[in-house]
Simulated assay, not measured.
Amino acid sequence: MTGTAEAVPAPEEVLTAMADPVRREILATLARTGGATPTSLAAVLPVTRQAVAKHLAVLDRAGLVRSRRAGREVHYEADLRPLRQATRWLDVLADRWERRLEAIRDLAEGGTEA
């Protein structure tokens, strides 16, 4: 990323990135191992190094990975902050819907007594 302040990815970017099972496995592997290169990830996943690189690009756009160059290789690490932010967003959304459904239920139950 450029600039001094990091952009906060929108929840839909994070959810879109997490929709793919290979990307979820890549992120889980990075979180578990502390980091890896596309080559080392491809060695443990059922996809090519090129496919891993494309998946990492999607995860990077969603802010879920950080990269650093080490010689000729690029080393990736998981950054779970955007995932936590998306989870909080989903929790707020679920609470809103729950309150709406409760209000509808209360209206329905109160309406039959009148």
Rank of each mutant, 00 (worst) to 15 (best):
S67G: 15
L45W: 03
E73H: 13
L45K: 06
A78T: 05
A19L: 06
R49Y: 03
R68N: 07
E12L: 05
A43Y: 04
L56Q: 09
T29G: 05
V44R: 14
A62E: 00
H75Y: 14
E102M: 06
T16R: 02
E102Y: 02
T112S: 15
T48Y: 04
A108Y: 11
A31G: 12
A31Y: 01
R61M: 07
S67F: 07
L45G: 05
E113H: 08
E13W: 01
A5P: 03
R99Y: 04
V44G: 09
A94D: 07
P9Y: 04
L27P: 00
E25Y: 04
P9F: 03
L27N: 00
Q85H: 13
A19H: 06
T39R: 15
E12W: 04
V52T: 14
A94I: 06
A57H: 13
K54P: 03
A10N: 09
P46N: 10
E6T: 14
T112A: 14
D95G: 10
L59V: 06
P46W: 10
R69A: 13
A62Q: 01
Y76R: 10
V74D: 12
R61L: 12
R49N: 12
A70V: 15
T2H: 10
I26T: 03
P11W: 02
L45Q: 09
I104H: 07
V58Q: 06
R105T: 08
T2R: 12
E98R: 13
A17K: 00
A5D: 09
V22H: 07
R100N: 07
E6W: 08
